[in-house]
Computed example of a mutant assay.
Amino acid sequence: MFDRGHGPSGSTLFHALHHGDRPLVLPNAWDFTSAALLVDAGFPAIATTSLGVAAAAGLPDGRAASADETFALARRLTRLPVPVSVDVEAGFADDHEEVADYVARLADLGVAGINIEDGRDNTELAKPERQADLIGAIKARVPQLFVNARIDTYWFGIDRESTLVRARLYAGAGADGLFVPGVTDSATLSALVGATPLPLNTLYSPGGPDVDDLAALGVRRISTGSALYRAALGAAVGLARTLRGETGELSTAPDYRRIQALLAAADSPDADPTGT
């Protein structure tokens, strides 16, 4: 048996999970208990959701605000007997060596992989060559770590024509997987699968292809992103509203923008710190 899912053998297992007969369904947890329950449900690996980790601490996602919270959760998750992949947003720093230092510290905890994005501040994209340099710096420090390179062209809806260029650059820099959230059409997915030999990661979408269709297209990993966290919030609010006598559809999951807006409002200088 491998050593609790992490360390060199855990990283090797995590790599192997991307090359099985079926795509790796990788659920994204936001705290230790959500991760532990997913492991108990039989999932062979766990990832984190940057939105869930940040929002649970009252911090915005995608703004490099939750480095400490992410690291603290990673430390706890490596107690689990499965490989763990950590979403580090864009690396929580501008300096490549500083990012590599942070990722190396995660690897020292026993983390098997990371997800790192080329989006910046939820509004723009890093230059592809600079992002490739960042990926190269990380792999030079922790070559055994699975680096999932997220491309945000479709997620942001900008510069989509650079997607395949980015995919090839990031693969050439040493990335182990490619993640292009926001793509659901079969033709684009097929083009992405064929762009590099790296396993393609997609984001689960209720309106997109199912697992069988994604497998037939060559997708090797399916992430849930913030969907589980948001579903849990929706269920909690729905139950609370039921208890005060409301009826009807009460458990709708809040979307990403709604959560970010709530966090921004709470952080506003005009917010009442007493909550009154």
Results as ranks from 00 to 15, higher is better:
Leu189Ala: 04
Asp213His: 15
Ala232Asn: 07
Arg230Gln: 13
Val211Gly: 09
Gly225Arg: 06
Pro197Ile: 07
Ala231Arg: 11
Ala227Gly: 06
Ala216Cys: 06
Ala187Thr: 13
Leu214Val: 09
Ala187Arg: 15
Arg221Lys: 14
Ala195Ile: 10
Leu192Gln: 12
Gly207Glu: 15
Gly194Ser: 12
Thr196Ala: 12
Leu192Phe: 14
Ala231Thr: 09
Tyr204Asp: 02
Leu198Glu: 08
Arg220Asn: 01
Gly207Met: 12
Arg230Phe: 00
Val193Ile: 04
Asp210Lys: 03
Gly208Ser: 10
Gly194Leu: 02
Ala215Phe: 03
Tyr229Asp: 05
Gly208Cys: 13
Leu200Phe: 10
Thr188Ala: 06
Gly194Val: 09
Ala216Glu: 04
Leu214Asn: 02
Ala215Ser: 15
Pro199Ser: 14
Leu217Pro: 02
Asp213Phe: 14
Ser205Gln: 09
Ala232Phe: 06
Ser223Gly: 15
Ala187Ile: 13
Asp210Ser: 11
Val219His: 04
Tyr229Leu: 08
Val219Lys: 03
Thr224Ala: 04
Ala195Cys: 11
Ala216Trp: 03
Leu217His: 00
Leu192His: 00
Pro199Val: 02
Gly207Ile: 11
Thr202Asn: 12
Ser205Pro: 02
Pro206Trp: 00
Leu200Arg: 10
Tyr204Ala: 04
Val193Asn: 05
Arg220Ser: 03
Leu189Asn: 03
Pro197Glu: 10
Asp210Pro: 04
Gly208Leu: 05
Ser223Asp: 09
Leu200His: 03
Gly194Lys: 01
Pro197Val: 04
Leu189Cys: 07
Pro199Met: 13
Leu228Val: 14
Arg220Val: 00
Ser226Tyr: 06
Thr224Glu: 08
Val211Gln: 12
Leu189Gln: 06
Ala191Trp: 05
Ala215Pro: 01
Ala195Phe: 05
Asp210Met: 14
Ala232Pro: 08
Val211Trp: 05
Leu203Lys: 09
Gly207Asn: 13
Val211Met: 12
Leu200Glu: 00
Arg221Met: 14
Tyr229Thr: 04
Ile222Thr: 07
Ser205Met: 02
Thr196Ile: 14
Asp213Ile: 14
Ala191Thr: 09
Ser190Ile: 08
Asp210Gln: 06
Ala215Val: 01
Gly194Glu: 06
Leu203Asn: 11
Pro206Asn: 03
Thr224Ile: 10
Ala231Pro: 06
Arg230Asp: 05
Thr202Tyr: 08
Leu214Tyr: 02
Thr224Val: 12
Pro206Gly: 08
Pro209Ile: 13
Ser223Glu: 10
Pro206Ala: 05
Pro209Gly: 12
Ala191Leu: 14
Leu198Gln: 05
Pro209Cys: 11
Thr188Pro: 00
Ala227Glu: 10
Ala187Trp: 07
Gly194Tyr: 02
Asp213Glu: 15
Leu203Trp: 11
Ala231Phe: 11
Val211Asp: 09
Asp213Leu: 13
Val219Thr: 03
Leu200Met: 10
Ser205Val: 08
Ile222Cys: 05
Ser226Gln: 01
Ala231His: 00
Ala216Met: 08
Leu217Gln: 11
Asp212Val: 08
Gly207Leu: 06
Leu217Tyr: 01
Leu192Thr: 03
Gly194His: 10
Leu228Trp: 07
Arg220Phe: 00
Leu203Thr: 10
Asp212Asn: 09
Gly208Asp: 11
Ala195Met: 03
Pro199Phe: 13
